[in-house]
Every structure is written in structure tokens, then in C-alpha cells.
Design a protein around this nucleic acid. Structure first.
Lengths: 214, 214
DNA sequence: CTTTTATGAATGAAGG
DNA sequence: CCTTCATTCATAAAAG
């Protein structure tokens, strides 16, 4: 479901050279390295998210409480959450995702436009095999692509529905403002942990060590 | 930038299978895994620990505050929260579909992992009753959850198993693991969650398993 | 660099 | 159970 497509690496001279699986694999030259599966990473990511959420909640509670009565003596002063930390954690556990190459995209688009609805499982297999020649791709990727393509195409038509008759072949048309508004809300919801200025902690010496990402 | 290296692994079993440097480098159709150095793992642990610590402190603080004065009118614990949408005018569009709270999810995950596959009708009832204490939930929700969980778990396995390898270039994968190396973090999280059972952490979920390499 | 948009992926629920 | 759909989430890419 996902491939870690490591793009341009900034040739960092990290302590441990990660050469797992390299062609020259016979060498036991990889001393200290830990391996995690996608699932494990995902789990970790979720747990960290939970913590972030809990902190958020608690800070909110605290703010409400202190707002009512001046409890100057109980500042959150000692609790600091380093933004960098959050961001670093995020990067570490961030999920990567497949991105179709232009060729693959064109091919998929082409098949999609042939109208034959949801490609059968077998069909998916064939398509995947075909597209593998043009880059990394999996059946799941193909499956998801069609699912999304179909769903979004459908929604677009709905949004333009009021005008049935004039423009129909708008598979690539722009979406209405309503969607936009919704997106904004959604956007704000997402970045909670990332940008709550009120709980801007700091003071953890941890930050300096966050040099995984770039 | 990072030393996350994705690799094709042939077996799918726990993070422990750190087979970096193995001789088989041509392995087709194998799962991808992330690799971390000891240092990175250590940093991650520290970061999580920081979160745990912050949460504990906040909880403690909150308890002290509420203890000092009876804030009956500010029962913050019950707000079906949405901390981020403080300016929530949009929130009118309430969520329609059930979303398990972290605690609920954890519980479900736990039961699921006990292997006792088929959740009988009676069992569903019990589980639902139990989880009701942690938030809105119905038997249908529980039922669906198990259905989906199982189906998806199964599918993941299929994606790993069919290593027939013709034209490699396979992508996605997952690692089915049963291990239960609960990390301390997990433990803390649990306690925290328990103490704040009436909080609803929207938007973030947590999984039950945390087990990265040692 | 920050914000916005496009879109790959996850998941609760419905159909069969 | 398995498949399909709708909605939501998260991130890569584009815009400012």
C-alpha cells in the first residue's frame, strides 16, 4: 500500500549507513540498525498522535480552568513541547505514498475513460503488471486509483449537476466553492498538534538531536 | 535527509527480522520495511517519553486544579471535544459515522488479537456494553469493526504471501505480526486514557500494538 | 518558507 | 464472509 520512495537524498553523512538490501548484501557490514515494518511505523505514528491529542486536550482544559479564575501560580511554565520535536516525530513517522508517473497516469486515465467501470481483480492484476514496467506500482495502488478516480469523478458531476446538459465531459473540472470551505475546516482540524501556539513548549534538549529528517 | 531505507523483504515477520545485509538481494515481491539506527530509535523513545511525561504532568495539574475548587459548571471532561475547532461554527455538520475513540480502538484491537476469531453475538453485546463506557458505540459498530478488521487483515496477508515473483517491482506490503511487545509508552497511554475516560480524542486513533525492534 | 490544492490511502458502513 | 462505496485523513505537489 505504500512505497517509501526516497527521492533526492541529501547525502547526509549519518552515523549509520543504511545499506540494507543493497546489492552487495553478503557483507555483514551493517552493525547497528533496527528494522520496522510499515505497520509498526504506522502504529507508532498513531500512538504519538494520541499523545499529541491528549496533550492538546489537557492544555485546553487547563486554559479553561485558569481562564475562570486567575491561577497565576500554576502556569504551564514547566511543560514545554518543542515544536521541532513534534515536527521531527512527524517526519520520522510520516507515511509515504505512491505517486504515479506520467506514463502510468496516462495509461490509467486511458483505461478509466474506456468506461468499463470497476476493473475486476484480474484486470487489476494485468494493469499492474503492465504498469510495473514504468515504475513502482502495486495492485493496491491501482485499485485505490480507480476507486478514487471514480468517486471523485462522480462527485464532480454532482456538484455541477444543477446544469445538466451543457458540460458533461468535465472529468477534470474545477470544484465548487462549497468544497473549498469544507476543505478549510478540514485543514484546520488536521494541523492541531502542529500549530497550537498556546502550548508551545520548549526546553527539551531533545530538539537538538532531531536530525533524522534533513 | 533521512536514512529511511525501504527494502524488499521476503518474509514478513516482525521487526526482529533484521536481515539487512543478507545475501539474497534479488528477492522479488517482498515487503518494505523502514530502517532506523540505534540512535534514531533512541531519540524516538525519548520523544515519546517526553510526551508521556507531559501528559502525566498535565493530568496531575488538572487534577489539582479541579480538586481545589469545585468547578461543577465546567465539566470539561464531558465535552465531546474538538479542541481544534474553537471557532467551531462549522461543527454543526456533525460527524455521521462512528469513529472509535483511542480507548475503544485499543480494546477492540486487543480482543481481535486474542485470535478468538468469530465474535459471537453474545460476545458483541458484551464488548459493546464495555465500550459504551468510553463513548458512543453500538453493536453494529462493533460488528462492522470486526468484519472489516478481519477482511483487511486477511487481504494484507495475501499481498505478502503471493510471492510468485515474475516481474518483481512489487510494491506495498505489510507485515503481519502478532507480537505483543507492549512498550512502556503504551502502558502509560493506557493509564492516561483510563483516567480520562470521558475525553474524546477526535481525529486521532491509537493502535494497540507498539513493537518496534527491541 | 507558508498556505492551498490534489490525490493516495484508510476505514466505517452497506450490499450480496 | 467478501466486495463496494462514501467519507475522511494525510501528504505530495502546486501556488503565493
Amino acid at each position: 500500500m505504500m512505497e517509501w520512495d526516497e527521492r533526492e537524498h541529501h547525502h547526509h553523512h549519518q552515523a549509520a549507513e543504511n545499506d540494507c538490501g543493497r546489492s552487495n548484501a553478503s557483507g555483514p557490514a551493517v552493525p547497528y540498525v533496527k528494522v520496522m515494518t510499515d505497520e509498526q511505523l504506522e502504529t507508532l505514528r498513531k500512538q504519538i498522535a494520541v499523545y499529541a491529542s491528549i496533550c492538546e486536550q489537557l492544555v485546553e482544559m487547563h486554559k479553561n480552568l485558569t481562564a475562570q479564575q486567575d491561577l497565576a501560580g500554576v502556569r504551564l511554565g514547566n511543560l514545554y513541547c518543542d515544536p521541532l520535536l513534534t515536527s521531527a516525530v512527524h517526519k520520522i513517522t510520516a507515511r509515504q505514498r505512491w505517486t504515479p508517473t506520467p506514463v502510468q497516469l496516462q495509461f490509467l486515465e486511458c483505461i478509466f475513460n474506456q468506461g468499463n467501470g470497476t476493473p475486476s481483480k484480474q484486470k487489476i492484476k494485468e494493469i499492474t503488471a503492465e504498469l510495473s514496467q514504468h515504475g513502482q506500482i502495486s495492485e493496491t495502488n491501482v485499485y485505490n486509483w480507480f476507486q478514487n478516480r471514480r468517486a471523485r469523478s462522480k462527485r464532480k458531476l454532482q456538484n455541477v449537476a444543477p446544469n445538466n446538459a451543457d458540460s458533461e465531459a468535465d472529468t477534470e473540472v474545477e470544484s465548487p466553492k462549497e468544497i473549498k470551505t469544507k476543505a478549510e475546516v478540514y485543514q484546520s482540524q488536521q494541523n492541531l498538534a502542529a500549530q497550537n501556539g498556546d502550548m508551545c513548549f520548549q526546553g527539551s534538549e531533545m530538539s537538538s538531536e532531531l536530525n533524522f529528517a534533513d
